[in-house]
């Protein structure tokens, strides 16, 4: 099992704990990653908002790089997935447009051929790796840990470009993975809503009200932490959580765990290596529960 690995900019910047935990977890699971060092930012939907063709060119370049490496592409960001799926749909559907794009990639010796498999790590786990195999790797069953899934918008919507016809359960994978590692998936209002990140700079109050409300509703349902496959959601839910708590005027204090960190804990990777201490909202309560389950 080998993938062309697109880490995304956030895991290489503000969320290094995501990058580290992804690398360690995959190594232990036996998923080989070949990093796309020369890949460029997907544009996070911001570039396509203003310059759609440019965004298509940039993403086609990434696709072609992955194809040159000869592997399926794996990403670890809901936003990356959304942008990549959107561009791919356009390119695969329209041969003429694809030729136009490829003409510009040619100077770098690159070409995008339709049909590249692009999967978020969450999809890879369920569809390629398999939950049964994952269960076998679990050495610390996360019994008693209540996790609220938080998907992030772009890995759920628009569903027509996200392979939901072929894989109708993709909007339940997080719950399935959480259960597979022995934890309990907590259902709550807001798990498939927006964390508010994109408007943080221009409407801070609305953005933080959204983040805070979802965290609060998960807490009301008994969640010890939230688990997300998207570092951008993580930023709004974790780094901004104290401010969000102020805005909605309630105490929150709910750790926000990256998906690979959750797996890492379950398959026995040291929490310091997973950089569980690199969160704004401390994760000690989660670690205590994990350890309590091991000792029991």
């Amino acid at each position: 099992m080998k993938y062309a690995f697109w880490p995304g900019c956030v895991s290489k910047g503000a969320c290094p704990e995501l990058y580290d935990s992804m690398i360690l977890t995959c190594a232990k699971l036996g998923i080989e990653l070949e990093e796309m060092y020369d890949g460029n930012c997907t544009g996070a939907g911001v570039i396509s908002e203003h310059e759609p063709k440019l965004a298509d060119l940039l993403n086609a370049r990434n696709f072609a790089i992955a194809q040159k490496m000869g592997h399926d592409l794996v990403n670890i960001c809901s936003t990356c997935q959304g942008v990549q799926s959107m561009v791919q749909e356009k390119l695969d559907r329209d041969e003429e447009y694809r030729a136009e794009i490829n003409a510009q990639l040619a100077e770098e010796g690159l070409e995008y051929k339709p049909g590249l498999v692009i999967k978020n790590f969450m999809w890879v786990l369920v569809e390629d790796y398999g939950l049964d195999k994952l269960k076998e790797k679990v050495v610390r069953k996360l019994d008693g840990l209540n996790c609220g899934p938080f998907y992030g918008c772009y890995i759920l919507r628009p569903s027509r470009i996200l392979g939901m016809e072929e894989h109708p359960e993709r909007d339940h994978y997080l719950e399935q993975i959480i259960e597979a590692v022995g934890a309990t998936a907590v259902q709550y209002e807001g798990q498939d809503k927006c964390c508010g990140f994109p408007i943080l700079t221009n409407n801070r109050k609305n953005s933080l009200t959204q983040a805070g409300t979802h965290i609060g509703s998960a807490k009301d349902q008994g969640a010890d932490c939230l688990v997300t496959p998207c570092p951008l959601c993580h930023l709004n839910l974790d780094a901004q959580q104290p401010s969000a708590a102020e805005v909605i005027q309630r105490e929150l204090n709910v750790p926000i765990i990256h998906l690979p960190q959750l797996l890492g804990l379950a398959i026995g990777i040291d929490d310091k290596l997973l950089r569980m201490n690199r969160h704004v909202v401390g994760t000690q309560a989660v670690l205590d529960k994990v350890m309590a389950a091991v000792e029991a």
């Binding site: 959304g82 918008c153 628009p158 809503k193 408007i199 221009n202």
Partner: peptide, 12 residues
């Protein structure tokens, strides 16, 4: 227009 979070819910 700047208050939309681009969440795609309406598209969906």
């Amino acid at each position: 227009i700047w208050d939309c979070t681009r969440c795609n819910m309406c598209v969906e």
